[in-house]
Simulated scan of single mutants.
Amino acid sequence: MLRIGLFLLTNFAILLLAGAVLSFFGFDSIMAQNGVDLNLTALLVWCAVIGFAGSIISLLASKWMAKKFMHVRMIDQPKNETEQWLVSTVESLSKDAGVGMPELGIFPSPQSNAFATGWNKNKSLVAVSEGLLQRMNRDEVRAVLAHEIGHVANGDMVTLTLIQGVVNTFVLFFSRIIGHFVDRVILKNEQGHGIGYFISVMIAQIILTILASMVVMWFSRRREFRADEAGAQLAGSTAMIGALEKLKAEYNMPSDMGETFTAFGLKNGRTGSFQEKFGHLFMSHPPLDARIAALKNR
């Protein structure tokens, strides 16, 4: 979920920045003066260029973002037996999965966590938390690593980028349709684009982005099941189920750990709460019980 979160954060920031910069330099006004605001085909093409550019930039920056914000310590040369084991394990799993050896690192976090990211199957990054190495046995760690290698082998980041590009396109497109409607129909502005256009576009873009994230999250949940299956194939079903069971037991612990997992969307909220009713729509991962059941029934 870390890779998804960083990707979405970067993508959202790029879209907002692109929209603000283009508005500041009067790009929308130039379009309006040339009748482009009424040319839906031209508007759609423009939105697609900006939308896919945002998602592609996010993909290309994903490894740098992960290293920077997660404070990943790269294992260039193993310094101890644990690091040597990690390198040899990832090397073996990558070979079995048919992908190149990824960069490997460890990031400081007491929670059991791991992620894989990168634009190329043969030039990816896999990182595990210190908490994962401390809390899980080696069979379980190997299963988690196999799960992440599964994401790489399945090309999940590239597929996510394409889906995000489509989502971005329609967010930009419909936010400007809404802005045009507010400006021309409600506010009766007939000369260029008024302040109502720019304000309504920004508000609509934020709201539509939040709604569109449900599509991306749905896709992410489906890919998690596939990565679990890949992990089970590479490391064994018993080890993969054991790792998920260990994670489930960890976030059910009555401590600050539970609050951390709640923030990442792994736990439901209070009975009857908005989070319990609708929070699952914004979760990047399926419930652990569902993932465990899927592996047991495969």
Rank of each mutant, 00 (worst) to 15 (best):
D156L: 04
M157P: 13
V158A: 10
L160H: 05
L162Q: 02
L162T: 07
Q164N: 15
G165M: 01
V167M: 07
V167W: 01
F170I: 09
V171R: 01
L172V: 05
F173Y: 14
F173K: 08
S175A: 14
S175Q: 06
R176F: 03
G179E: 11
F181T: 05
F181H: 05
R184Y: 15
I186L: 02
K188F: 12
N189Q: 10
G194S: 05
G196W: 08
G196C: 01
Y197M: 00
F198Y: 03
F198M: 01
S200W: 05
I206V: 04
I207T: 07
T209S: 13
L211Y: 02
L211R: 06
V216L: 06
F219Q: 01
S220H: 07
R221G: 11
D228R: 02
E229F: 13
A232R: 14
Q233N: 10
L234A: 05
T238C: 08
A239H: 09
E245W: 04
E245P: 08
N252E: 14
P254Y: 10
D256S: 14
D256R: 09
M257L: 12
E259Q: 13
F261G: 03
F261A: 06
K267V: 15
G269D: 01
R270Q: 08
Q275A: 10
E276Q: 12
G279S: 13
G279W: 05
L281G: 04
L281C: 13
M283P: 03
M283E: 15
S284E: 06
H285W: 15
H285Q: 12
D289E: 07
A290H: 12
A290N: 02
A293Q: 12
A293K: 09
